[in-house]
């Protein structure tokens, strides 16, 4: 019994020591997941990704913060970014490994696909082998485009949209928004290829 208590104390002390040792700031730069230039300076819970930083419309539907989004980035497992927002340089962890730390939950951003109405870019969140979220970072905007974009976004994006339901890019075309749907699917497919 005495040894069990000793072991439990050791477990608590050891865990604390490890976390404290790792927590000590040594370098503000932290490995990042996303490619350069993608506006994800803050973790999802803090709100939408840098709105209005560029003239074009970013993040067609920035998820409202209040929305109970279960998958909001699965950030616990995902790699963290510092609040300071570094420029996205990949940094090798202190131990000198050549690869960045591998999280369970990853976000993968598809390429910008241009359609006749404007650019489309999709970002997906993958937990394990499952897609758990899809966000349109960019969709055509202005006039009729807004309408089309909203319809595609409503159908495809989100934690319970078509992308999560179908677990792939094999999605039904949204009626009267064929080109936008197509652009969305291409960016998504590229993101999926990249995730695999």
């Amino acid at each position: 019994m005495r040894r069990a208590l000793l072991a439990i104390t050791g477990l608590a002390a050891g865990t604390t020591a490890l976390v404290v040792l790792k927590g000590a700031p040594e370098d503000r730069q932290v490995a990042r997941e996303l490619p350069v230039g993608v506006p994800v300076g803050t973790p999802d819970r803090t709100g939408p990704a840098t709105p209005g930083a560029t003239p074009q419309r970013t993040a067609a539907t920035p998820r409202p913060t209040g929305q109970p989004s279960s998958t909001a980035g699965r950030t616990p497992a995902a790699r963290r970014t510092t609040p300071g927002g570094d420029a996205g340089t990949r940094r090798t962890p202190a131990a000198g490994r050549t690869t960045a730390p591998k999280p369970t939950t990853r976000t993968v951003t598809g390429p910008v696909v241009s359609t006749e109405f404007g650019n489309v870019q999709v970002r997906i969140t993958v937990a394990g082998t499952r897609i758990v979220d899809a966000v349109a970072l960019e969709l055509p905007q202005g006039g009729q485009s807004d309408l089309r974009s909203d319809r595609v976004d409503a159908a495809y994006s989100g934690t319970s949209g078509d992308v999560v339901r179908q677990q792939g890019a094999n999605l039904d075309t949204v009626s009267q928004a064929t080109a936008t749907s197509d652009g969305y699917r291409r960016s998504l497919q590229a993101a999926l290829d990249q995730a695999r």
């Binding site: 050891g14 490890l18 790792k22 927590g23 963290r80 962890p93």
Partner: peptide, 25 residues
């Protein structure tokens, strides 16, 4: 593996610390 995968100084908030301790345990 946890030690090698976790960049030093990356545990900035309470949530990070709790999660890291949860992983170790």
């Amino acid at each position: 593996p946890w030690w090698l995968d976790t960049p030093a100084g990356s545990l900035t908030g309470t949530a990070d610390v709790l999660t890291a301790a949860g992983r170790v345990t």
